[in-house]
Deep mutational scan, measured.
Amino acid sequence: SDEELKKRIEELVRRGNKDEARKLAENANSDEARKWWEKLEQL
Rank of each mutant, 00 (worst) to 15 (best):
N27H: 11
L5Q: 00
L12F: 04
R8T: 09
K6W: 15
K39I: 13
G16I: 00
K23N: 08
D31R: 05
K18P: 07
L43E: 13
S1F: 15
E20S: 02
R14L: 13
R22Y: 09
A21M: 01
K18Q: 07
N27L: 14
R15V: 10
S30K: 03
S30T: 11
K7H: 09
G16H: 02
R14K: 12
V13H: 07
W36N: 01
K6I: 14
S30P: 03
L5P: 00
W37D: 01
L40W: 09
E4L: 11
K18G: 08
E41W: 13
R34A: 05
S1D: 12
N17T: 02
N29D: 11
W36C: 04
N29W: 09
L24S: 00
E20L: 09
E20F: 01
S30I: 04
K6N: 05
E4S: 09
W36I: 06
L43M: 13
A28G: 05
E11K: 03
A28S: 14
K39A: 13
S30L: 06
R15E: 13
R22L: 10
E11S: 04
R22P: 02
W36M: 05
L40R: 02
E38D: 08
E26N: 06
E11P: 00
D19P: 02
W36D: 02
K23A: 12
R15S: 14
L24F: 03
E41T: 15
A25T: 04
Q42C: 06
N27V: 07
A33F: 15
R8G: 01
R8D: 02
D31V: 08
W36R: 02
E3W: 12
V13T: 01
K6P: 00
S30M: 06
K39H: 14
K6F: 15
K23M: 10
S30V: 04
V13Q: 01
K6Y: 14
E3F: 09
E4D: 13
R15Y: 06
E20Q: 06
L5Y: 04
L5M: 05
Q42R: 10
E10F: 07
L5E: 01
N27A: 14
L12H: 03
E20R: 01
D31F: 08
A25V: 15
A33D: 04
E10W: 13
E3N: 09
S30Q: 05
E11W: 10
E11Q: 06
K6R: 12
E11A: 07
N17H: 14
A25D: 01
K18T: 13
K39Q: 13
L12V: 01
A33L: 15
L24N: 02
N17G: 03
D31P: 11
E11T: 04
N17R: 13
K39V: 12
S30F: 09
A28F: 15
A21K: 00
R34F: 13
L40F: 13
Q42D: 07
K7E: 05
E20H: 03
D31C: 08
A21E: 01
E20V: 03
E41G: 07
E11L: 05
L12N: 01
D31H: 08
R14C: 13
E3R: 06
E11F: 05
L12I: 01
W36G: 01
D31A: 12
I9T: 00
R22F: 11
V13M: 15
N27E: 14
W36H: 09
A21F: 02
R14Y: 07
N29F: 10
A33I: 15
L12Q: 02
A25Y: 06
K35I: 12
R34K: 10
A28K: 02
L43I: 12
E38P: 02
E32M: 10
D19K: 07
R22C: 05
R22K: 13
V13K: 01
D19I: 05
N29Q: 12
S1N: 12
L5T: 03
S1M: 15
E38R: 05
L40M: 12
E26G: 05
L5H: 01
R8Y: 08
Q42A: 13
L43S: 09
I9N: 00
E32S: 09
L24V: 07
D31T: 08
K7V: 06
D2F: 15
A25C: 11
L40A: 08
L12Y: 04
E32F: 10
E26W: 08
E41R: 09
R34C: 13
R14G: 05
L43V: 08
E10H: 06
E38A: 11
R15H: 10
S1I: 15
E41P: 03
K6D: 02
R14M: 11
E32D: 10
A25F: 07
E4Y: 08
E41H: 10
E3P: 08
D19N: 05
E26P: 00
